[in-house]
Nucleic acid binder design. Structure first.
Lengths: 229, 229, 229, 229
DNA sequence: CATGAATGAGATTTCATTCAT
DNA sequence: CATGAATGAAATCTCATTCAT
């Protein structure tokens, strides 16, 4: 995976590549502006203003405006994929795994709020080839969720009549929608938000047996909570 | 609400403005393109190409590109507000009202998929004044939802420990996220989707009492379903 | 031969196409500047200045700077090909055909001096696809010349030991080089120049027999001359 | 001839300038690229890529892009002038001198193909001062040729009715056009090509007397040939 | 010598908008 | 109403050149 596509401005032979810290600084500036104005409505000028550099100078780091978007999205995407893989490696119980999945997602989205939001909003603005390349990343959130729900059904803990694929899509949308309003500057900590999500999602799919086992819906709703932040 | 801004090209002589059908046709074309490419990434050319007209000609119908966006959003927004007002006027029982609210939302979003999606995605691209003007429309979805949930808590049917404001935001996001994947061309009918949403949302907020009353979570999950479409 | 490639700015459906006279005016202006400064050294600004228009306005007529070059070259090329085809349709005698070919070439180059010069100089600046497309035009000057010389050898009028292919290339270069210095503003008429070319080229390839038949080299050198202009 | 302009980076301290071999290497790289893409279409990047160096580094050798062009052209030009001077110093007979001139030209062009081609094509891209400076080099090819032809007419060996100035220009164009197709990689040796040129050019200007003296055109055409290479 | 960051100017192209016909 | 030419501003990108390290 040499990823030559954005290896900033590698044309000829030499080039150790530019200072990676500076590069990150610049990509982060781009991300901020993309978040505020939207990718298409952002000009290269906007980015260079944010960095405090002339617009032409940005092309030291990147070959096109789209490269910025690509970098931002590729990076979160790769990390997100890693994250998914690790989830529930310990947990065997499906509802516990579901809870862990949700919490991981909320934490991740909160930790990479800017980039993750951009990925959700602007993915379609990437060129077809790059969209394809990134999508190959493998298993998606939806698929991972679906697998957990299926395990849950097999274990009798998830409502057997649930349309698992559809539910996964709905839950994913529910979780992702936090990017539309969540701010790290607010008083709501990621883990507190995760507690709420976990409670709502679990009860929205739990089987009768799961509810009973937990001692009722309200009990189930707090069973996997971390408590006050 | 004089709304002169987009009253298509009313200037100078006593003109009744252009053929309203043609106008709708053109605004719909604009909406299609905005949906496909995003507002900022759409050029006036793109729209005129879709209509089969030269770009200069569009200015007979509209005074600026933003007018298209405004028209599209204003129209759905107004209809949506009307819709909300009607909800549950009959229903007195909070969970029934919640179910009705959800169903109405799904139906509405499905019926106005393009415009509603654009409203969600591109609202921020409107000028500050127009955003302001539109927002004055009144009570939002979130507030309406919140009111229902509060009634539910008062009636002991919604989990008393639920953070109602937060839950309303989450549920709204969950419902709105259907615009990211739902297609009227698929085999899933709006009412079928609503059934699923209703089941998941209701159980995600229901109190112990509500569950018991319904005869268990699974029962509650289908209590307000319309059944097969 | 729809030739959509430069059909000026046809994006959507409609478009009868712009005023062809204005288009020609603009392409001619571009040709002038290309001739003076060279294609690569010419900016779109240079062209628009020459036309007396803003640079952006040029994109009404053309989709890229290269389109100008393409138009210029394609047009002369097509006419040149037509020209070649007609040559010597009457003449049966090889040396007469050779003389006619040379005269036609000189007249053509003089008549289309700007465009023909650009074609010779800047052909390589076209994109690979366009070069390919144009080359398909068919038989080239060199091939046409070669055919005439071969006929001449068969008839014993061209030196049998001549390397016909090589001679054709050399003669073509000799003829084309007039674009490097010829000016219609000078006192040398195209037909006078053609007389000189005809005399020099014919004697440079003539067989012993041809010379004898003409009554000597000097006689041969004037045999196909039109005389004073 | 102080020529400080490109005396590679001699400023400030007592420096002998950079390694001349490295300098030549770099200028040669520039020449290659100029030949392939044309001077104006070549970027400093292109050159530095070819050398395998970063573009900023080129400015250790040269003060501007034009300096490369100047170096290349100046060098061939100077050598070419030297070459002309030597021609025919031995030969007294005009046709022999003409043959020697042609052979020398072909050899020279073949030996310095890249630089000579660039000189022909890109001379006009030099600044006015540098063009002037170089032209002062003295007598040009055309003038040298013209002198030979005039001697030939005086000796009765060149067609008396020939417009000598015009013929010189034509022959020069004929010879120079070899740069448009000749390749040292092909099987045609410079001397073989020179044989052909000599034969064609001599018969194209020879007087009746010269032909008779040689024993016919065909004989004249091979009289000064070196034969198979 | 070479690097790599940056500059500043300019190149090509796009695009919303206007307007005479 | 529609056209098509044009505007004027801005957007993306290129590039020769400089310079501290």
């Amino acid at each position: 995976m040499p990823d030559a596509a954005t290896e900033p401005a590698k044309r000829g032979r030499p080039r150790r590549g530019p200072d990676p810290e500076r590069f990150r600084e610049i990509v982060d500036a781009a991300a901020e502006v993309f978040l505020e104005k939207g990718y298409s409505a952002t000009s290269i000028q906007d980015i260079s203003d944010r960095v405090g550099i002339l617009k032409g100078s940005l092309y030291h780091y990147v070959r096109s405006k789209e490269d910025f978007l690509y970098r931002i999205i590729k990076d979160v995407y790769d990390e997100a994929i890693d994250d998914i893989r690790k989830i529930g490696e310990g947990e065997q119980e499906p509802l516990a795994r579901l809870a862990a999945f949700i919490r991981a997602h909320v934490r991740f989205a909160a930790a990479h709020l800017t980039a993750y939001t951009i990925q959700l909003r602007e993915f379609e603005q990437l060129s077809a080839e790059r969209r394809e390349e990134i999508r190959q990343g493998g298993e998606t959130y939806v698929e991972a969720l679906q697998a957990i729900l299926e395990d849950g059904q097999a274990a009798g803990l998830v409502d057997a009549s649930l349309q698992v694929r559809l539910a996964s899509i709905i839950i994913t949308g529910e979780l992702n929608s936090m990017t539309r309003w969540y701010s790290p500057k607010g008083s709501l900590e990621p883990d507190q938000l995760a507690d709420v999500y976990v409670g709502m999602v679990l009860t929205s799919v739990a089987s009768e047996a799961a509810v009973t086992k937990a001692g009722g819906v309200e009990a189930l709703r707090t069973e996997f909570a971390l408590g006050q932040g």
